[in-house]
């Protein structure tokens, strides 16, 4: 199986450690991971902020880069959801109202979308594992993130993976399913509401008494983590991949 890592622009630029964790985790589980170097960004920021034409160009680039792989794995629920849920609509909407849509894009998208997985989906559904042999002796709480939950519908896959990690104490997060207030450019355009949402998320995280806040999306973690750090809470953020990659040997 040819597995391509779709790193996402945010992880590529700001969180390379998450990408490295995905690589070491998947290799440990026997996968050969390739990194198509021509990849850039899925276009989510452009599309969700209202720049559909740029979005279509980036979608076109994306399907070009990732065509030919058996599976595309992204350590981001939001970016995986963008490709899987939004690309088909984007192509449809763009075609009926405006920007130039290359012929064949709709077909290429339809072929691409079933192969795109968030990390937890790939592990549980494709590889069929929930115990990935990780060791992480810390108290952890998990924020499910909106696009994993309501876009991809990953359900309890991430927590099933976490609950198999040796030494890890998973504590439930009150109001877990509520948005943290990131929302891409929403965090800047509606900074006041975004901050208010984040404040409640931070309070709920603090109430768990966890050392680590885990999620499967670094954008949301960057948001909540930014507030956790500003408030000197001492709670650190970790991507799901980084916890699952941790083993006793590596420690």
């Amino acid at each position: 199986m040819r597995v391509a890592l779709f790193i996402t622009c945010v992880n590529d630029t700001l969180f390379p450690g998450t990408g490295q964790a995905v690589v070491s985790l998947l290799r440990r589980l026997g996968c050969e991971v390739e990194f198509p170097a021509a990849q850039t960004c899925c276009g989510q920021m452009h599309v969700n902020t209202g720049y559909r034409a740029e979005g279509v160009r980036l979608a076109e680039h994306f399907v070009d880069v990732f065509a030919g792989y058996d599976a595309v794995v992204a350590p981001s629920g939001s970016c995986a959801a963008m490709v899987r849920e939004q690309y088909p609509r984007l192509v449809h909407a763009a075609r009926s109202s405006g920007p130039r849509v290359p012929s064949g894009l709709a077909g290429a998208v339809a072929e691409m979308t079933p192969k795109v997985h968030d990390l937890s989906e790939f592990l549980v559904d494709v590889l069929g594992v929930t115990d990935v042999g990780a060791y992480f002796p810390h108290r952890v709480t998990y924020h499910p993130t909106c696009h994993s939950l309501r876009g991809l519908r990953v359900g309890d896959r991430p927590t099933r993976l976490l609950s198999q990690v040796r030494g890890l104490e998973l504590v439930p997060l009150r109001g877990a399913e509520e948005c943290c207030g990131f929302g891409g450019t929403f965090a800047v355009k509606n900074a006041a509401v975004s901050s208010a949402m984040c404040a409640d998320k931070v309070r709920n995280v603090m109430d768990t008494g966890a050392e680590v806040l885990c999620a499967a999306d670094n954008s949301c973690l960057m948001h909540i983590g930014g507030a956790l750090k500003r408030q000197r809470t001492g709670v650190r953020i970790m991507h799901l991949a980084e916890i699952l990659a941790a083993t006793e040997e590596v420690r």
């Binding site: 790193i7 992880n11 590529d12 630029t13 700001l14 969180f15 390379p16 450690g17 990408g19 490295q20 990194f35 170097a37 965090a187 800047v188 355009k189 900074a191 006041a192 975004s194 901050s195 984040c198 404040a199 960057m222 948001h223 983590g225 930014g226 507030a227 750090k229 500003r230």
Partner: peptide
């Protein structure tokens, strides 16, 4: 500034993933 009013920005790593 709407971001940094209430949150830190993440440290930029020395090297990108690519």
């Amino acid at each position: 500034g709407g971001w940094t009013d209430t949150r830190e920005i993440p440290d930029i790593p020395a090297q990108s993933f690519r």
